[in-house]
Design a protein around this nucleic acid. Sequence first.
DNA 1: TAACAATTGTTATTCTATAACATAACATGA
DNA 2: TCATGTTATGTTATAGAATAACAATTGTTA
Lengths: 163, 163
Amino acid sequence: MKQSSDCSSLQLTTTQWALSEAETVCQQRGVRLTELRRRVLEIIWNHSSPLGAYAILDVLRNDGRQGAPPTVYRALDFLLEQGFIHRLASLNVFTGCRQPGAHHSGQFLICRDCGQVDELSNLTVDAALRAEAMARDFEVSAQTVEVLGRCLMCRNEASHHAN
Amino acid sequence: MKQSSDCSSLQLTTTQWALSEAETVCQQRGVRLTELRRRVLEIIWNHSSPLGAYAILDVLRNDGRQGAPPTVYRALDFLLEQGFIHRLASLNVFTGCRQPGAHHSGQFLICRDCGQVDELSNLTVDAALRAEAMARDFEVSAQTVEVLGRCLMCRNEASHHAN
DNA sequence: TAACAATTGTTATTCTATAACATAACATGA
DNA sequence: TCATGTTATGTTATAGAATAACAATTGTTA
Ligand SMILES: [Zn+2]
Ligand SMILES: [Zn+2]
Ligand SMILES: [Zn+2]
Ligand SMILES: [Zn+2]
């Protein structure tokens, strides 16, 4: 059964997958996944919830690497450009993309308690927004679709403590 | 014909409408639309494009009123709670709500050139997102739907200058 | 190797938002 | 009216997010 509840082993695998995907795409595109950029992508994937730029910076410094905000923001800019990560505007955090390389805006369910993110690819939402835009002669360049709420796990937690 | 292109006269009317709507709703709810809150709402509606908190603060100071960031953020919090304005997370700005009083998350077309905002109420988008959430046992508390792009006017402007 | 481009380091600053506490305005009942 | 509690605003300081500007380094190519 692959549906293990052991998150850490699952996550390692996911991180490794994301890194190798990124390697491949970068080679195809002739851009460089440098040590720093690779490490930032790894940090993002290694965490179950999305991280802010300064949290990533803390991890980098823990690595022993010197760095300041621009260090991490430049790496993030690269990863965003390549479509390896998304920025969640409602929380100022960054999360790994589940369809890396395919430039897209993404749609997200974000748990406000545990921070876990579920990336959707709902074509109905996308099409309905494009139709609205077209009807108004509006040229779409990016969509920000972020649904904030609570996941099942956190609702159960909450009701436990509420006893 | 009411479809006048005279924005300034149209806008005044819109602002007045928004303010009187807010007055009414506040009376119904037994909350106070103080001078400051009313003025902040007015400032937001008086501008064709959404404003950031510090831009609003500048206008307040121009009024001669003393003030610091908390002054405007508290007013904004009140207006957000009452559903009179929306915060656009992708731009860190605030815009007047076209259905004030009816608490809702809102959906927006935002022109990245002129900043003009079009507020949608697309039920298909809303329903599709809720369905996705339900399928994942996710309890929705708020939706952030912001479509960034360019309006027709700004596209024409751009092609003119590109000659 | 020399020259150029891309990446990273470094310092400082801007922009956005909130914490904490003091003061003022408003409401309510004695 | 006055004391009281509550709500709203003033004020200072700080936290958090992002970028500007320039220096140093690394990688690439002629
Ligand atoms: Zn994605
Ligand atoms: Zn959760
Ligand atoms: Zn609205
Ligand atoms: Zn425009």
